[in-house]
Amino acid sequence: MNLEKVVFGFFVLLAATLNFGFFIGDIADPELHNEYELFAAVVVSLIATVLKFGDRTQIGAVHLATSLVADLQLIAATVVFAYAAHVSTEGLTASSTAAVVSLSGGALLANMVSVVLLVTETVSFHRS
C-alpha cells in the first residue's frame, strides 16, 4: 500500500463529498447550506490541488485541470457569499444563495470528474 496514494485518494474524495454536502438541499434556502461546510470544501479542494502538482502523466494533467476548475468555482462561490453577507445591503437573499450554491454545483461536477479519474486509474492499474 502506497501512503501517498492513500492521502491523495482521501483528499480527492473528501473534496467531492464536502462539496456534495454543501450543494445538497433547496438551492435558494440559506438555512440548508452551511458556510462551515463551504469553507471546509474550499480548504480540502485547495489541498487536493496542491497534491496533484508535479504529476507529468496525461491523467495527472487532467486531474490537475479538474481540481483547478473546482477551486475556481468554489472560490467564486465564497466571494459571492462574502459579498452577499457583508457588502450587499440586502444580506443573504434567496437569489444570492442560489448563485453560491449553483457555483458550488459546478465545482461538484469537476470533483466528480476527479473521482471518476481516480477510479479509472485504479481499475486500469489492477488490470495491467
Binding site: I47, V50, L51, F53, G54, D55, R56
Partner: peptide
C-alpha cells in the same frame, strides 16, 4: 514539474 512537486509540502 520538479518545482511543483517540491512545493507540495510547503503549500499544503
Amino acid at each position: 514539474f520538479v518545482i511543483m512537486r517540491r512545493m507540495r509540502v510547503p503549500l499544503v
